[in-house]
Simulated assay, not measured.
Amino acid sequence: MPVTAKICGLNTANTLDAAIAGGASHVGFVFFPPSPRHLEFEFAQALAGRVPGRVGRVGVFVDPDDATIEAALTAIDIVQLHKTAPERVAAIRARARREVWAAVPVKRREDLAAAARLRGAADRILYDAKTPEGAALPGGMGLRFDWDLLNGFAHPLPWALSGGLDPANVREAISATGALLVDVSSGVETAPGVKDMDKITAFLKAIG
């Protein structure tokens, strides 16, 4: 099956267009003020209008309240949740009536146990590198986990691979894990929150 990619943290029309032109299956808009990739709802809506129907628009949230989700729904097709308890994931999914992805932060094999608790709550799991204790951001820091931890793991849901991916290593990551959907943010940037069109294009070419 073909591998597809989500380019996350897009915040300009030019980089969004590059992701779409390069064949991204999904584009991600971040709604989390501490992040350098955070978007105001109005601007996200303007960007969302540039996205063709074949490309999924993913809103990225960190344990959001209902009002935050509601404000973003006109700009997104999919809700991606970080640091959100399984019962809250299920409640958001029921309320928003959108496909929901839930992040499972990974550092050790035992961290994968959290995936099973999302069965029935989320539609897809996003395996991401666990950030250091006390870190301001739950992702987008260029960290990767040991991909071998996924070897032989019985995934309870469809899943995607994230964490420290870039144009140079994504092919290896796909070979090591069997991922059919990969997610990149900082790996296609020149500085935190500053996406690079050439890196986006190179990443999407590398997964082909």
Results as ranks from 00 to 15, higher is better:
residue 65 D to H: 06
residue 66 D to Q: 12
residue 90 A to E: 14
residue 125 I to F: 05
residue 75 A to K: 07
residue 111 D to C: 08
residue 97 R to N: 09
residue 43 F to Q: 14
residue 116 A to R: 12
residue 106 V to H: 06
residue 132 P to N: 12
residue 68 T to L: 10
residue 58 V to A: 02
residue 47 L to C: 09
residue 67 A to L: 03
residue 48 A to E: 11
residue 44 A to D: 08
residue 125 I to Y: 07
residue 39 L to Q: 14
residue 90 A to I: 00
residue 101 W to R: 00
residue 124 R to P: 00
residue 129 A to P: 04
residue 31 F to D: 11
residue 51 V to M: 12
residue 128 D to L: 13
residue 45 Q to P: 01
residue 113 A to Y: 00
residue 67 A to W: 02
residue 55 V to C: 06
residue 114 A to D: 13
residue 37 R to E: 02
residue 36 P to I: 13
residue 73 L to G: 07
residue 53 G to I: 05
residue 125 I to Q: 03
residue 75 A to Q: 05
residue 48 A to D: 12
residue 94 A to M: 03
residue 45 Q to W: 09
residue 78 I to W: 09
residue 73 L to R: 09
residue 86 P to G: 03
residue 60 V to S: 09
residue 55 V to T: 08
residue 41 F to V: 15
residue 120 G to M: 07
residue 70 E to R: 14
residue 116 A to D: 14
residue 51 V to L: 12
residue 103 A to K: 06
residue 34 P to G: 04
residue 83 K to F: 04
residue 106 V to Q: 04
residue 42 E to I: 11
residue 69 I to E: 07
residue 43 F to K: 15
residue 67 A to Q: 15
residue 85 A to H: 15
residue 75 A to W: 00
residue 55 V to H: 05
residue 122 A to T: 09
residue 112 L to K: 11
residue 82 H to W: 14
residue 81 L to P: 15
residue 85 A to T: 12
residue 59 G to Y: 13
residue 71 A to E: 03
residue 35 S to W: 06
residue 52 P to W: 08
residue 59 G to V: 11
residue 127 Y to I: 02
residue 100 V to Q: 09
residue 42 E to F: 06
residue 97 R to V: 04
residue 76 I to S: 08
residue 124 R to W: 14
residue 124 R to N: 01
residue 37 R to S: 10
residue 83 K to C: 10
residue 48 A to V: 11
residue 121 A to E: 01
residue 35 S to C: 09
residue 122 A to G: 08
residue 62 V to H: 12
residue 117 R to G: 02
residue 58 V to H: 05
residue 94 A to E: 14
residue 40 E to M: 04
residue 72 A to E: 02
residue 64 P to E: 06
residue 87 E to K: 12
residue 74 T to E: 11
residue 105 P to S: 15
residue 132 P to M: 04
residue 128 D to M: 12
residue 50 R to S: 02
residue 89 V to P: 15
residue 70 E to W: 00
residue 114 A to G: 04
residue 106 V to A: 01
residue 34 P to Y: 09
residue 104 V to K: 10
residue 62 V to K: 13
residue 111 D to H: 12
residue 65 D to E: 12
residue 74 T to A: 15
residue 76 I to W: 03
residue 111 D to V: 09
residue 98 R to F: 00
residue 52 P to N: 08
residue 131 T to I: 05
residue 44 A to E: 07
residue 37 R to A: 03
residue 116 A to G: 14
residue 91 A to T: 10
residue 80 Q to F: 00
residue 122 A to D: 06
residue 74 T to G: 11
residue 102 A to Y: 01
residue 100 V to S: 05
residue 132 P to E: 02
residue 32 F to I: 14
residue 86 P to I: 10
residue 102 A to S: 15
residue 52 P to T: 04
residue 115 A to W: 00
residue 103 A to S: 14
residue 72 A to C: 05
residue 101 W to E: 01
